[in-house]
């Protein structure tokens, strides 16, 4: 027994550490802690904004537009020219049952039931009083039973806090400098998270490109000083677009100073599509 003790003794100091090892290990740990931050900087270009950059950003904020949309639902007659123009302008296959914008018909009967339809996204307008209830079936409503009925144009709300952008795993969708949420078709992997995340159902799969597709406020038109195709096509000025950063913009002034409503404000998405004449039936 006494012979074994000397053998066991040298094993005891394994927990102890020499000054040299301590410094070495501390160095490695410090490097290990700092490395991820350095890697982030390397990979994403994360850098603290210098004061010069901040000043530059402040200047661009005033010159770069921030687009907002104004829908006057009172004026909409459900002709669907906006949907036709949008599909043709933006190469969304005309026969596909998918569209960047659509018009809903809301018919509320006196028994409190709300009937909502948008056949073919209202591409051909509403030319029959019968409600499209899917699978090729329609529902006839006696005009005397109608309490109220109206049309509501819908499109992407270009939210200031877009949930669709937050869920994109690859950085393919983003809020551009002018406030419009865009999809990078070369980067999109088609996972569909954004389509599910949008509370407004504004996104869909493009049948040809097989990527997420959405309204761009006609970025290619508004950046050239033109109106979006739907705004230009609307005969009744039910759709209008404004620039929040332009103090002389009449539409932005209406949004800022008149009584307007947004869809699903409770989601905290801060939508940039504003409505006049929105009924509480509309979600």
């Amino acid at each position: 027994m006494s012979d074994e003790l000397p053998e066991a003794l040298p094993k005891e100091p394994t927990g102890s550490i020499s000054r040299r090892d301590f410094l070495k290990k501390t160095g490695w740990i410090a490097a290990g802690v700092l490395a991820p931050a350095g890697a982030l900087e390397l990979i994403f270009g994360l850098k603290g904004a210098s004061s010069a950059q901040a000043a530059e950003a402040a200047t661009t904020a005033q010159t770069v537009p921030h687009w907002q949309f104004l829908v006057d639902a009172n004026k909409c007659v459900g002709c669907g020219f906006c949907v036709k123009a949008c599909k043709l302008e933006n190469d969304v296959p005309y026969e596909a049952d998918a569209s960047r914008t659509w018009v809903e018909r809301h018919v509320v009967t006196k028994d409190g039931v709300s009937h909502v339809d948008s056949p073919n996204s209202a591409r051909d307008g509403f030319t029959t009083p019968d409600i499209d209830i899917g699978e090729g079936k329609t529902l006839q409503i006696n005009p005397e039973d109608i309490a109220k009925a109206f049309f509501v144009p819908k499109l992407c709300n270009q939210c200031n806090h877009p949930p669709c952008v937050q869920v994109c795993p690859v950085g393919a969708t983003y809020k551009g400098p002018d406030g419009v949420v865009l999809v990078d078709r070369t980067w999109c992997i088609g996972c569909g998270y954004c389509i599910n995340a949008c509370p407004y159902g504004a996104r869909f799969f493009h049948p040809v490109y097989h990527t997420a597709e959405k309204c761009t406020f006609c970025e290619h038109r508004i950046s050239k000083g033109l109106l979006p195709a739907c705004v230009q096509a609307c005969p009744f000025a039910a759709r209008r677009i404004g620039n929040q950063n332009d103090p002389t913009d009449g539409v932005a002034e209406v949004i800022a100073t008149q009584r307007v409503e947004v869809l699903k404000a409770e989601y905290g998405t801060n939508p940039q599509c504003f409505y006049i004449g929105l009924d509480s039936e509309v979600r």
């Binding site: 994360l46 806090h161 809020k175 865009l182 050239k224």
Partner: peptide, 28 residues
Amino acid sequence: GIHGTFTYNFYRQANVTEWQSVPVKYQG
């Protein structure tokens, strides 16, 4: 990379120009 905030502005910057250069079809 990040052109603004990481949450909303993480993208390929050239894509903005790509969208802006889509041909205009409706002439007015």
